[in-house]
């Protein structure tokens, strides 16, 4: 198993980040082009806690390295299943995702958390991401290692692009929201 983790801080409030997060993969994000569709499978507010639980299906264009595809075969599209939890009182978003495609070869479990930045909780948001990547294919350890290495590499590229793309979404969201408010105040 390999672990990939990263963290960063966005210069936006938790409210802005957690709202924009729902449209992270909209056309304003021109970096995460491997994501082709995002569908909501279910959504519910837990009556006792007020926590919003959402299940989504993320459809990606094949983003595995070519040699892996030729080794294990594979379809043009891959699917990721995500459950997220929003706690509006403690201001925490947690997103847990796992791969549906190739689940017999590779297991990728990602957890992402968005929380207000402790020093400037009203204007900054901390982002933490951790992924556990485990090759499951039986046989040579060497191949498993290679599969894991390549997956971590690809994961970190997508994570970097994802961050850049999300910055663009945050910027556009703030602009559009500001314009909307101006219109409503006129």
């Amino acid at each position: 198993m390999r672990v990939f983790d990263s963290d960063c801080t966005f210069e936006y409030s938790w409210e802005e980040v957690s709202t924009a997060n729902w449209r992270k993969y909209c056309p304003w994000n021109d970096k995460s082009t491997h994501v082709v569709a995002v569908d909501t499978l279910s959504r519910k507010v837990e009556p006792q806690t007020g926590i919003l639980r959402t299940e989504r299906l993320i459809t990606c264009n094949q983003s595995a390295p070519r040699w892996i595809v030729s080794l294990f075969g594979g379809k043009a599209l891959s699917y990721v299943y995500e459950i997220s939890y929003v706690d509006p009182v403690s201001k925490k978003v947690t997103m847990c995702s796992t791969n549906l495609t190739w689940s017999n070869v590779l297991n990728v479990r990602e957890t992402v958390v968005y929380q207000p930045s402790p020093l400037l909780p009203n204007s900054k948001t901390d982002f933490k991401q951790e992924a556990q990547i485990t090759a499951l294919c039986s046989g040579w350890q060497k191949i498993k290692n290679k599969v894991e290495e390549a997956s971590v590499e690809r994961f970190s590229q997508n994570a970097k692009r994802g961050r850049e793309g999300f910055e663009a979404v945050l910027q556009m969201s703030r602009r559009v929201f500001g314009e909307q408010r101006e219109l409503e105040n006129q």
Partner: peptide, 24 residues
Amino acid sequence: GIDTMLDEARKNSRESDAEHLKKP
């Protein structure tokens, strides 16, 4: 044919529910 893949994945979602649906 994605529905069957989803059913499989949902079996493991109890863990994360137990961890994240409760109040901290």
